[in-house]
Nucleic acid binder design. Structure first.
Length: 295
DNA sequence: ACACGGACCTGAAGGC
DNA sequence: TGCCTTCAGGTCCGTG
């Protein structure tokens, strides 16, 4: 799935079309995505104005004038495409398997704004989901209640990470994948952040904290690396995997900057390092790292 | 509280 | 060509 940089890129793409827009017509083509869609989903959206679009972790939040918030998670394959009136072609957003908008059989939700723009949600695997949550209940909703800190906000500090890591036996990979610790990282950016901080994904998370609970130097480096890799990826418009033959400017290009992800058997990019990128499986997911410079 | 494995769903790619 | 296996950017739930 889209991780934080991809979700942020999608949010930014939707913003000009949806922020401040009145939703004229909503079409719901199936009763559920990953979960059942809310009761009276269409009725609760039609005629509403979407005041603004935010992001929390990997969720896109659309604040409606009804006091409800449309929350969207893209799962693994969720994406949006936009068609504007008069424009011959729509613009693809969330192009994680970019091919002309995906199989129309997986177009599940279509939203038309008062200006005639059409926003289509397509999701082949349907791991994505949408909810309508009263704004004042958002923080207490099960999807948001346990979320950890925003990695690009002020709360991700070495002290925070060290406190969470104290006594943890889980490896660093699992620790960083846990949305209750840091919210927004996923498989790619965890691998990349660990590479940038020179940390072996197999190490126990507890190496981030000293005996007295203070952060170690490793912890300091990791916090910097997480921020840097996410910021660079957002700057690049996220990462587009597995199909970019129709690159059209709306595609992310951070995949060209991967240091380890997807590079099994290729040489480590650290200057003077003679190591080879290795792939292992942790928690059922691929991890890529350089055994030579990640210790 | 934490750790781990399986489940959910579809499609693409590779081996035979 | 077709069939089978593996893999994919996520997270929820049940089990120890």
């Amino acid at each position: 799935m889209p991780e934080l940089p991809e979700v942020e890129t999608v949010r930014r793409g939707l913003e000009p079309v949806l922020a401040g827009a009145r939703l004229r017509r909503v079409e719901q083509r199936r009763a559920d995505l990953r979960f059942p869609l809310p009761e009276r989903f269409v009725e609760r959206l039609e005629g509403r104005t979407l005041n603004r679009l935010d992001r929390r972790a990997k969720y896109i939040l659309g604040y409606l004038d009804s006091g409800e918030v449309l929350t969207i998670h893209l799962g693994m394959t969720g994406r949006f495409s936009i068609a504007r009136p008069g424009g011959p072609d729509g613009r693809q957003l969330g192009e994680f398997t970019h091919d002309a908008g995906g199989d129309p059989a997986h177009d599940h939700i279509v939203i038309e704004t008062e200006t005639g723009a059409t926003v289509t949600y397509n999701d082949a695997r349907r791991f994505g989901y949408m909810s309508l949550i009263p704004e004042r209940e958002l923080a207490d909703h099960p999807h948001f209640k346990g979320l950890g800190v925003e990695p690009l906000g002020p709360d991700l500090t070495p002290a925070y990470l060290a406190r969470k890591a104290t006594g943890r036996t889980a490896d660093l990979k699992a620790f960083l994948m846990d949305q209750r610790i840091v919210a927004g990282l996923g498989n790619i950016y965890v691998c990349e952040a660990l590479y940038r901080s020179g940390l072996n994904p197999n190490r126990a998370a507890s190496v981030l904290a000293r005996r007295d609970g203070e952060p170690t130097g490793r912890c300091d480096r990791l916090v910097v690396a997480i921020r840097e890799v996410l910021e660079a990826a957002i700057e690049a418009g996220g990462s587009t995997l597995r199909d970019y033959r129709h690159a059209d400017g709306s595609l992310g290009y951070f995949q060209h900057s991967f240091s380890v992800y997807g590079r099994e058997g290729e040489p480590c990019r650290t200057p003077a390092c003679t190591g080879t990128v290795k792939r292992i499986v942790q928690g059922g997911r691929s991890t890529f790292y350089c055994p030579r410079c990640q210790r």
